[in-house]
Amino acid sequence: MDGGAIRRRLALGLAVLTASGLLAVASPGHAEAADACSGRKVRTLPFATGSVSVYKRNGYVCAVTVAKKVSGRKLMSVSVQARGSRPVADSGWYTHHAGPVTVHAGHRCVWVKGSVGSGSVSSGWILC
């Protein structure tokens, strides 16, 4: 291989790495969390430091808490409770989102809660 071919391959490799890096930076962080739940989005519960997205599919309800600002690890949580059942929850120190958590609700109401740092939301019984 001559010097020109080596330079072309290096340039191509650098271009591919640069493009993949730009895509990673430019892609919205919320898409990652939204992809975690399947089904159709039925509610968004906003609060001061984030929001909880609620999805429903074939009797299952899924929820994800997403932080409004991505800046270091924060205490986050999300929980979903079908009426008559125990809540399913996820909490911990996360940078972007907590969850997803999924419950089988059938045609029962659900109670969704979420928090990011000092902000939180509690839905009350919904999707009845």
Results as ranks from 00 to 15, higher is better:
2 D>P: 07
3 G>L: 09
6 I>M: 14
10 L>H: 08
12 L>T: 13
16 V>R: 00
18 T>S: 15
21 G>A: 12
23 L>M: 11
26 A>T: 04
32 E>W: 11
34 A>R: 05
35 D>I: 11
36 A>N: 04
37 C>A: 10
39 G>Q: 14
42 V>H: 06
43 R>F: 10
44 T>P: 00
45 L>I: 00
46 P>A: 01
48 A>V: 01
48 A>K: 00
51 S>T: 12
52 V>N: 11
53 S>D: 15
54 V>T: 07
55 Y>T: 06
55 Y>V: 08
55 Y>H: 09
55 Y>F: 15
55 Y>W: 15
62 C>K: 02
62 C>L: 07
62 C>D: 02
64 V>I: 12
65 T>L: 01
65 T>M: 00
66 V>T: 03
68 K>V: 00
70 V>R: 02
71 S>Y: 02
74 K>T: 13
75 L>E: 15
76 M>R: 08
76 M>F: 09
77 S>E: 14
79 S>M: 07
80 V>T: 10
81 Q>I: 09
81 Q>H: 08
83 R>K: 14
86 R>F: 11
88 V>R: 02
89 A>M: 02
89 A>Y: 08
93 W>N: 12
97 H>W: 14
103 V>H: 13
103 V>W: 11
106 G>R: 09
109 C>T: 05
110 V>G: 05
111 W>T: 09
112 V>G: 03
113 K>E: 15
115 S>E: 08
117 G>E: 04
117 G>P: 01
118 S>Y: 05
118 S>W: 07
120 S>E: 13
121 V>P: 05
125 W>F: 08
